[in-house]
């Protein structure tokens, strides 16, 4: 069910999205920057908040505290929803749509 960069769960009403990790955030995901994932059908609509829980349980390989803190991303990691700053999109409450592209960029690594 879980392969290196591709996770597929076939279920009704699943949401297919693309996740990207960069700026050093990919270090927590086996150095794989791009992940095409299919989120399983859910009674509740998928939001960034529930996506973070899903990432923590399904994709994160090590040290989850370096990516999530409480129910949100660790401060210093930028989130873009279809290239738009998540701060303009409702942050954790944004409801995921089919083919959304969510990018996580760490600013915490050396410059």
């Amino acid at each position: 069910m879980l392969s290196k960069s591709k996770v597929t769960v076939s279920m009704a009403n699943s949401v297919n999205i693309c996740l990207e990790f960069s700026g050093g955030a990919e270090l927590l995901f086996d150095m794989v920057k791009k992940h095409d994932v299919s989120l399983p059908g859910n009674s509740q609509p998928w939001t960034i908040k529930s996506l973070l829980v899903w990432i923590k349980e399904n994709l994160l390989k090590e040290r989850p505290e370096l990516f999530v803190q409480g129910d949100t991303v660790r401060p210093g990691i930028l989130v873009l929803i279809n290239d738009v700053d998540w701060e303009l999109m409702g942050e954790l409450e944004y409801q995921l749509e089919e083919n959304d592209r969510i990018v996580f960029i760490s600013t915490l690594h050396g410059g």
Partner: peptide, 14 residues
Amino acid sequence: VMYAYFKKLDYFST
């Protein structure tokens, strides 16, 4: 970081 991302500048981060 946003500028580098939007402009697709080539940088190294480790």
